[in-house]
């Protein structure tokens, strides 16, 4: 048999299994959150489903002990790869005091964890882009070898901060990688109504940086693009724009009903390309994953998700008066 794709990318069998596990963990946490939401236990969910491959593929191409990430709300795959745990995520879903993202102050999926170099994010979309550029500027000034990695949705790539941030990075050739996770919709508005250019990555030329469109359902394709972008960044060749095309498999959020703007056939068609299954198939065909290992992985992830859910559900809320804390340095 010829060299397998992951091997030609320099990835070991253990690494691709680790990628698969991270994708699956993200999916399973996400699915559990929907159940908890529908059971009335948590007020809000916003999903990563359909984007795990892009998130995990990209993260594994980064230096996960030195690089900085500025994720957006769907990036459960990114934050898990960067060291956040299922328990941390469940604590945030239940808005409990121990939530490392915000202590229960922000809605779930507003990620942030300094010890893992995950920049804190907010709700207004795209504000994180200039932040990642600022971190990259600091890397340049401090003569450090890390890069920053920032993500956003394709609809969000219409915001001024996208343009301002990428232009700034292009002018100063800063080590920042921007990945647009094109899931074809911004809530209800399809990509054709968001962007007149054929591809989001076409925008790169305006910022003087290379732009690539890759299959966001293929973690190895995304890995390869981000790996090359990172190499360029640390070699002083500047920023890169990557568009990872996939599909949003759930409604926009737990408050949205996507049946009002897209049909079931379209969603079913997209599900055939769901990376959780297609990547499992790749691993099986490569002889790395068998039924036994798959059962083992599933059991382990189930246990992790159950434990995280139980822990978070029983964890205490922050004291009411603690709402007054940390406006300024104390």
């Amino acid at each position: 048999m010829s060299t397998k794709r992951h091997e030609s990318l320099g990835l070991s069998n253990e690494q691709v299994i680790e990628m698969y596990k991270t994708m699956l963990l993200a999916r399973k946490i996400d699915e559990r959150m929907w159940l908890l939401n529908r059971a009335g236990k948590i007020p809000f969910v916003i999903s990563c489903q359909g984007q795990e491959a892009a998130q995990v593929g990209a993260s594994f191409a980064l230096n996960r002990s030195e690089d900085y990430v500025a994720p957006y709300y769907r990036d459960m795959g990114v934050v898990l790869a960067f060291g956040m745990t299922a328990k941390d995520l469940m604590l945030s879903a239940f808005a409990k005091a121990e939530d490392p993202n915000s202590g229960g102050r922000q809605m779930p999926s507003h990620f942030g964890q300094k010890k893992n170099r995950i920049l804190s994010g907010s709700s207004p979309v795209t504000t994180q882009v200039p932040h990642a550029v600022g971190v990259a500027l600091a890397a340049r000034m401090e003569k450090k070898d890390f890069v920053s990695f920032v993500t956003l949705g394709e609809g969000s790539s219409n915001q001024g901060d996208f343009h301002e941030g990428l232009n700034f990075a292009g002018v100063h050739k800063l080590p920042v990688i921007t990945m647009v996770e094109n899931n074809k919709y911004a809530i209800s508005v399809p990509i054709e109504k968001q962007i007149a250019a054929e591809k989001v990555s076409d925008r790169a030329i305006g910022y003087g940086m290379p732009g690539f469109t890759v299959d966001g359902n293929d973690p190895l394709a995304v890995y390869e693009a981000v790996k090359e972008a990172r190499d360029r960044a640390v070699n002083g060749e500047g920023p890169t724009l990557i568009e990872a095309v996939s599909y949003r498999l759930t409604a926009h959020s737990s408050d949205d009903d996507d049946r009002t703007y897209r049909n079931k056939e379209e969603v079913d068609e997209a599900k055939k390309k769901d990376s959780i299954f297609t990547f499992a198939t790749y691993l099986q065909e490569a002889g790395i994953l068998n039924d036994e290992l798959e059962t083992e992985i599933n059991d382990e992830i189930n246990r992790i998700v159950n434990e995280a859910t139980d822990y978070a559900e029983n964890a205490p809320y922050a004291e009411a008066e603690s709402a007054l804390k940390y406006v300024y340095e104390e």
Binding site: G134, A136, D161, E164, N167
Partner: peptide
């Protein structure tokens, strides 16, 4: 910097988050 105030503030905030 380029003529773009949101980037001036936003890039500054990012650099400050890093510790500048």
């Amino acid at each position: 910097t380029p003529l773009a105030e949101s980037a001036i503030a936003g890039v500054g905030i990012g650099a400050a988050m890093y510790g500048m």
